[in-house]
Structure formats: C-alpha cells, structure tokens
Design a protein around this nucleic acid. Structure first.
Lengths: 259, 259
DNA sequence: TAAGAAACGAGCATAAATGAGCATCAAGGG
DNA sequence: CCCTTGATGCTCATTTATGCTCGTTTCTTA
C-alpha cells in the first residue's frame, strides 16, 4: 500500500468511526505507530483531522456514511437505473442533473454515449453537482453548465442564492433528480433544505421531471421536500421495488420504470 | 505503441482504477519505470493527474474517494510564489482566485493553513476554477463560493455570462490572478477572451489585486487583456526575474515580490 | 501529590523512489 | 549516406519514507 492510499484509508476509517487510535491504525495499515503519527500530523496540518493524544478525531463529521455504503452495495442497480434513465434522453437535449451517486452514474452514461455528429453539442447538461462538472469538463461533445454557489462537502452539490440565481436564465427539457427519499404522499425529499431548494428549481424549469431512486429509497422520506408527486413525470427505480409499492405512484400519474 | 497512445492508455487505466503505480504502469506498457515517470510528470503538468511517490492518482472528483488527500510536493518556484502570496492574505479575508496551476497552489497553501479559531470560516474563497472548488470543498475551515458558467476543458475555468453574473453580488478583499503573460505596457493577459472577461471582473471587485506569475511569464504578452498595469497592486514572481525586468513594474506603482 | 505507564518527538539507519545525465536507437530530411 | 531530433533505457547521486531507539512529556491512579 502506498503512502497516498494509506492516508486516504485513514481518512475513510476516521469518517466512519469519528475517531481512530494510533495503535489501531498502525495495526490496520500494517505499519509502525511512528508512521501513523507522522501521517496524522500531516493530515492535521491539512485540516483534515484533529490530533488527540493517542489518536485523532474527524474534523468534519460530514461524510455521509450510509450514502457510501449504499453506493458499494447497490452499484449494479445504480448502473441499470442510469442506463434506463439515459435512454429517456434524446440527442441534443438540455438536461438538468442534481448531485448524488445515481445522477453521477447517469452523467457518466450520457457522457460516454456516441456523438451523433452535426457539430452541435450532443447534449447540454445543467447541474449543481461539482463532481459531475469536474468529471465531464473534459468530454468534448457535452456542454456543461454549472450553477454557482457554495459546495456542501457531504454531497458536492452547490447551494445557496447564487445557485438559485442561474435558473432565472435557463430552461430544461428534462430534469433528472436523485433523491434520498420518495413517497406517494410527500413526494421527493432529501436531507438538506438548501439542496432541496435548488433541486426544486431544477424541476420547475423542466418540461419533464425524472426522479431516480433505488428501491431502498422508495417509501422513505427525508427531511426536506423537493417537490410533490404530481410534479414528477417519471420514476426510474430497480426491481427490488415490488409491484404493490409501485402502484400508488402509477395511480398518481407517475410512469414507473423498474430497470 | 506510440508515446501518444501510451499516455492515453495511462489516463484510461487511471480513470478506471483511480490510481496507478509506476511499477505496474511500466509492466503494463512494457517500458521502463523511467519512461513512466516522465509520462506521469508530463501528465501532471497538464493537470491530468496528480503525482504521488511511487505512482499517480486520477484528478477527478469522485464519490468513490470522497476524502482526497493531496500530495504536497516540495519547494518548487510555484510553491514559493504560492507561499509568499498566501502571506499577503490576513485571516478571515474574502479572496478571489482564478484558474491556473499557480493559483491552485495558492489555494492549497491557504486551505492548509492553521485555523485561527473563533468559529467563523478562516477564509472565504470566491473562484471560477472548477479544480480549486473540487479540491477545497472538503476543507472544513474554508468557505468556497464558485461562480457558475461553462467550464473550458483546457483550464477548468468557468466562463460566460453566468460566471460574470455572480460578480454583481459579491465584493472581495483580495483578487489573486494567475496569468500567462504580463508586461508593463499591456498589463496582465491570458490566452482566452472569455476567461479574461471573468478575470477582469475578479480584479474589478477587489480592493487589492495580486498577480502571480513565474519569471517566464513576465515580459510575455498573450492574446486577451485582463487588466492594465495600473490596476495591479502587487506582482508575486520568482527570483528568475531580474532586477532590471522588475524595475518598470515598480515604477508603475506595482509592488514586486520575488519569492 | 508522586510513581508508573503510555504517548510523543527527535535522531538515525535502511530501503525505495526519484531526477539528472548520458548513451543508444529509430525516424526523417538534406 | 550522414546528420539532426526526439524518445527511451541505464547508472548513479540525492531525496523521501519508514522503522527503531531513546530521552522527554503527559496522563493515570494509587
């Protein structure tokens, strides 16, 4: 394991547990305690953690553990959802994407799809997700428009009035929203009210609203409401969602796609 | 396999795995480790990857590596320039940064500097550089404000009317501008007129304008003008700039710091 | 409060990685 | 045919990362 990998692994462990002792870290990484101390000192210098006697504590409690676990667990479902969602997007469309692991996967699928030619960008993607913009900035046949704003470390989404301001100036063909919860009664929800506000604007500006959510999120609700079920045109989810659970959405006029 | 093919293959492997060791790359490409090091160095120069001891890591933000440790390379000219520039920034300041390798280095130095405490963000950074925002989003002690706009693949800078619109809403204590050329007659210049326009707004909104440029850029001029020499308060450069070359700037009222 | 234990930092030795310099090789042009 | 140019591989001095030892600091608890 290289030094670089080890430092990242230490941060991972720290994000999970919130704290980490020198001894435990040394055992996990199979290096001496002296090395771990040097690592902790360097990461402390970079403000990534705070040194304590005998160990270190996480500096920002910000890493969304459940999110990351689900990423690993539902990877293939996410990719099938992403592929199905990309299938809804015609060439040349203007598409809005918010942040999240599923929408990032959608962005990857869209970016790698063949260029229909004709000189114009094959696709315009409007997003408030920093990671999506970074990843797609180098793709030549996709035009990226990033909202401004302040990034939340937890999700890499830009929020705030500066993010909202952009939506006075654009319209979208399709908005693809990743959410952490969706129910027939409460509609789409996410954990943060600032993100919800920006996501709502994405939905408002779009002709067609697509919500992507793996089966574990359907029936859950989170703190901040993004939009009502009646606003949603399509829900793309996976086969872990039962027919019965899908029925209320269909009745509310939402097309449900189980990839 | 040509050199060009090999560089692309390296980036491909890196995109897949997120990291790559010199040894493994040498084996896969059937070339010596020395060649791989040269390749990595060149790609690192182009911001396509980040060099680590023993290998390299991909340069894109990803949910798979939510906490990214950045290697602090050692005293190069850029880093001395960056350190000197960071010394000009008082705690709690609101600072504007444009894109470029030197300003990215300034951002790193600012992000790792010790927290003065007191609860408020130690620093607010307003930038149109996607890579700086990505890298600093996880730093808890720095508030990042990103302009909106369309990223240019070459520089990761956001440009266009959406980027410009932000500057109606903010003011800055200090603007730090990386440029590709600066002369006493023509002022600061860069290769792209859209970037120049956004950079000019950064300078306009700031009380104090600092231009960072290594010695090779002083005396050069590029296509698009950012601002006049009279607008510039401070030029931070390195010791490769002769006293004689610095004199015209001093006479024009620019404080020249040779780090 | 004081003794013992744990953690720490500094210094040193070793091994790996690196960068610089040099020789070789292939491609292309006069 | 020879020369130039650029890429590559090799060697060696230097830098960097690591583990160990030892004296010092800090915490625990009697």
């Amino acid at each position: 394991m290289t030094r670089h990998e080890r430092l990242n692994a230490l941060l991972e462990l720290l994000a999970d547990a919130g704290q980490l002792s020198v001894e435990e870290a040394a055992a996990r990484m199979a290096v001496s305690a002296a090395t771990i101390r040097r690592d902790f000192d360097e990461l402390a210098q970079q403000q990534m953690l705070t040194r304590t006697r005998g160990g270190a504590v996480a500096n920002s409690v910000s890493y969304d553990l459940p999110l990351r676990y689900k990423t690993a667990r539902h990877a293939s479902e996410k990719q099938r959802i992403a592929a199905a969602t990309a299938g809804l997007v015609p060439p040349g469309a203007i598409i809005g994407l918010n942040g999240g692991t599923t929408t990032t996967e959608v962005a990857r699928v869209l970016a790698t799809r063949p260029d229909p030619g004709g000189g114009r960008p094959a696709l315009t993607i409007v997003t408030n997700a920093l990671n999506i913009a970074s990843e797609l900035a180098v793709r030549p046949h996709v035009k990226i428009v990033l909202t401004g704003g302040v990034p939340r470390p937890q999700s890499y989404e830009l929020t705030g009035p500066l993010a909202a301001g952009i939506f006075d100036h654009v319209t979208l063909d399709i908005a693809v929203l990743g959410v952490t919860g969706i129910t027939p009664e409460h509609g789409a929800t996410c954990p943060n009210e600032d993100e919800a506000a920006v996501n709502r604007l994405l939905a408002d500006r779009a002709d067609h609203v697509v919500v992507v959510a793996d089966g574990s999120k359907v029936g859950r609700r989170d703190f901040a409401r993004i939009c009502d079920t009646t606003t949603i045109n399509t829900l793309v989810t996976d086969e872990t969602l039962s027919e019965e659970a899908a029925a209320p959405f269909t009745e509310a006029g939402v097309e449900v796609i189980r990839a």
